[in-house]
Every structure is written in C-alpha cells, then in structure tokens.
Amino acid sequence: MKNLINLLVVILLFAIWHQEIQRFAFSIAAFVVAIILVTREIIQCFIGFLYISSSTPFRVGDWIVVGGHAGEVTSTDMAKTTLLEVDLSTYSYTGKSLFVPNLQLITLPITNLNYMKRYVNHSFFYIRESLTINPFVIKTALLKQAKKHCAEFKDVAERYNSMIENRLDIKISGPEPSVSFESTELGKTKVVFSLFCPTEQAQAIEQKMLEQCIKLFISEEKKQLQLNTITPSS
C-alpha cells in the first residue's frame, strides 16, 4: 500500500508539473546545443589532434604543405600545429611562423615533403629568343657542366635516391641531371634543367647553370654572326 501511494504521488506530481519539466528539459537541451556550437572549433581541433596522433601523417621536423602553406613542423598540441614557413621556390626559411588549427588537418589535404629537406628534384628553365642557332648544339656542353656541379655529391645522391624509391615504392627522376629543350607560345627557346641535388645547394647550382647557359648561347651566336658576315669572295 505504501509503495502504491508513493507511485500515485509521483504520477500526480508529474501530471501537475509536466509542462514545467518539459520546458526544463528543453532548456537543458538548448544549453547543451549552445555549448556545442560555441565550442565546435575547439572540439574539431581536439579531433584533429587525435587524427594526427593516430594516423601520423607527419612528424616534428618534416616539411609539409597544408592549405597552400609550406613549412617545417616545429610542434603540435591539442589546438594547433606550428610551422616554420619555407619558401619552396628557394627552399629557404622565411622567418615566419604559421599556426594551423588542427581542424584544418582533417578538412584539407596534407602533402608531406619530408625527403625534400635533404635532397630535391630541382627543376628550372631559361628562355632566350634565339632563332639563328640550333640550341641542341650546346646540349652536350650543358650536360657536362651539370654533371660537373653534381659530381661532389653523386654517390650520396644515388644512395638517397634509391632509399626514397624503396621507401615510397615509386620511381622518381634522378640522380642523373637532364637538359631538354622546348618552345614557348611566342616561339622562343626554353631550356629546361632537372637536377637531383642537396636542397641547400639547389639555388647555387641553378645560378651556375644559368650562367653557363647564357655564355654558351652568346658564344654560339657570335660564331653564327661571324659566319654570316663572311662574304662569298673571302
């Protein structure tokens, strides 16, 4: 009888206060939803931290590209990943620090450039308007100069190239340098160089090769000019 009376009292109280209880439940639900909306970015950053911790797409010290920004990973925490910005055109540090929210690491593609920190497939080109000479006559000389500049690290480059191919299970260009010729839309001669070299020496080797290329073009143009000035009587 006592249990029955208690049950009836509970039912009676619920019947009297059910609207207040319902409004209270809605208030609690609205409060929880508001908290989730306010802290959504923080929750996503935490989920991003769990993602990079479990999948390990990169480690501290790797070079990565996220959202069009490249840099070396210096630290990670539950909110953000800190990058030391790298200019991929010169392979040098800009001195700027990038703070990438971890939520972007689960919404944006991540490119790991870890092998480029030591060696890189460095490609560059030189364009010259030279319609009087055949550019292929200087190809052998350019290749000779390229091999000369790469001779000091050739053995290490071959080993590093093989290590990268075995680790990534792909075939990459190198370590032998290459020189090819193309034509631009305006009909100019475009000389394309490709070198597998230490990252820190890439810019210096590029400047040396461009200097040699210009000298060879000038030399061949002078020879062609001398031939054109020779008269038939001579």
Rank of each mutant, 00 (worst) to 15 (best):
residue 199 T to V: 07
residue 234 S to Q: 15
residue 160 Y to S: 10
residue 223 K to I: 11
residue 169 D to L: 09
residue 158 E to G: 08
residue 84 L to E: 14
residue 23 R to W: 04
residue 1 M to A: 10
residue 218 I to V: 11
residue 34 A to N: 09
residue 233 S to F: 10
residue 139 K to D: 04
residue 69 H to R: 07
residue 132 T to Q: 08
residue 42 I to N: 10
residue 223 K to Q: 10
residue 42 I to T: 12
residue 18 H to M: 09
residue 58 F to T: 04
residue 12 L to W: 07
residue 189 T to W: 03
residue 61 G to I: 00
residue 52 I to R: 03
residue 217 F to L: 15
residue 119 Y to C: 10
residue 91 Y to F: 15
residue 89 S to I: 04
residue 115 Y to R: 13
residue 174 G to E: 05
residue 109 P to T: 05
residue 201 Q to A: 09
residue 232 P to E: 11
residue 105 L to T: 00
residue 68 G to H: 02
residue 206 E to A: 03
residue 124 F to M: 01
residue 90 T to L: 07
residue 35 I to Q: 08
residue 68 G to E: 01
residue 97 S to Q: 15
residue 38 V to A: 09
residue 40 R to G: 03
residue 15 A to Y: 12
residue 219 S to D: 15
residue 187 G to F: 04
residue 228 N to H: 06
residue 68 G to D: 07
residue 147 K to R: 14
residue 43 I to P: 00
residue 43 I to A: 12
residue 85 E to I: 03
residue 119 Y to S: 11
residue 170 I to R: 14
residue 138 I to F: 08
residue 61 G to Y: 02
residue 167 R to C: 00
residue 145 Q to V: 04
residue 107 T to D: 11
residue 135 P to S: 03
residue 84 L to Q: 14
residue 123 S to F: 03
residue 208 K to L: 14
residue 124 F to R: 00
residue 47 I to D: 02
residue 37 L to Q: 09
